[in-house]
Simulated assay, not measured.
Amino acid sequence: MTEPREDTRTHRGVVIPDNWPGYCLDLFTYPEYYSGDLDCVYIPHGVIMDRTERLARDIMDDLGDHDIAVLCVLKGGHQFCSDLVDRIQVLNRHSSRSLPMTVDFIRLKSYLNDHSMPDIQVIGAESLSVLAGKNVLIVEAIVDTGKTLQTVLTQVQACKPKLIKVAG
């Protein structure tokens, strides 16, 4: 009997072992002002952009022709969100179908004068009412403990969107 094949859509993605030394700096060019600060490169920019394009394709496949409201969590999510939206727009231009998008921004504040606050403040939450009945894609740079993401999810769910997906 053969083993069942793993579904690639549920795969964890790129896995970097804890003891992996990274790529040698001699393989890359980087600004001189980083000289002495870098030991290695763990994930080259090209790999990140390739994964971003794959994610854009997955979003297009999942949402079909349904419009989407992208909610970018600032400040950290800005560049990733920009790259992801750009990739979706390129795919839209080269596709027979289209995924209409709007992009909105919120910012989370969990520190006051370098001290962590017990509650996370959502700046820009007053404009979230436009998400009612829409497909929402929350774009976050890093999901660590999940505390900030849970706060955003609670705020967005209160607006009663049709669907919520998270990219981070």
Rank of each mutant, 00 (worst) to 15 (best):
T2V: 12
P4W: 11
D7T: 01
T8H: 12
T8A: 14
R9L: 15
R9P: 06
T10V: 13
H11G: 15
R12V: 08
I16E: 02
P17F: 06
P17R: 13
P17N: 07
P21D: 07
G22H: 04
G22E: 05
C24F: 04
D26I: 07
D26Q: 14
D26S: 13
L27G: 06
T29P: 07
T29V: 13
Y30M: 02
Y30N: 07
Y30I: 03
E32C: 02
S35K: 13
S35Y: 02
G36T: 12
D37C: 11
L38W: 10
L38G: 09
D39P: 00
C40N: 10
V41Y: 04
P44I: 04
H45R: 09
G46P: 00
V47H: 06
I48G: 04
M49G: 05
M49P: 05
D50Q: 09
R51K: 05
R54L: 15
R54A: 15
D58T: 11
D58R: 12
D58F: 06
D58W: 06
I59P: 08
I59S: 11
M60I: 09
M60D: 05
G64S: 01
G64N: 01
G64E: 02
H66L: 14
A69I: 02
A69V: 08
V70T: 10
V70D: 06
L71Y: 05
C72M: 03
C72Y: 12
V73E: 00
V73D: 00
V73M: 01
V73K: 03
L74W: 03
K75N: 10
G77M: 10
G77F: 10
Q79I: 05
F80Q: 12
F80Y: 13
D83I: 03
L84S: 05
L84P: 10
V85A: 09
D86A: 15
D86P: 00
D86G: 08
D86H: 14
L91A: 01
N92H: 01
N92E: 02
R93M: 11
S96I: 11
R97Y: 05
L99G: 07
L99D: 09
L99F: 09
P100C: 04
M101N: 00
T102N: 15
T102L: 14
V103E: 03
D104T: 14
F105Y: 15
R107Y: 02
N113C: 10
D114M: 12
H115S: 13
M117D: 08
P118C: 05
D119T: 14
D119H: 12
D119P: 00
I120T: 09
Q121M: 12
V122P: 01
G124S: 05
E126F: 09
S127P: 07
L128D: 03
V130M: 11
V130E: 09
A132T: 02
G133W: 08
G133I: 07
K134F: 08
V136W: 10
V136T: 07
I138T: 02
I138P: 15
I142K: 14
V143R: 04
V143D: 06
D144A: 06
D144F: 03
T145N: 00
T145E: 01
K147C: 01
T148K: 07
L149F: 03
Q150G: 00
T151M: 04
V152K: 01
L153D: 09
T154K: 06
Q155N: 14
Q155D: 12
Q157G: 03
A158N: 07
C159L: 02
C159P: 00
K162A: 14
K162G: 09
L163D: 15
K165Y: 04
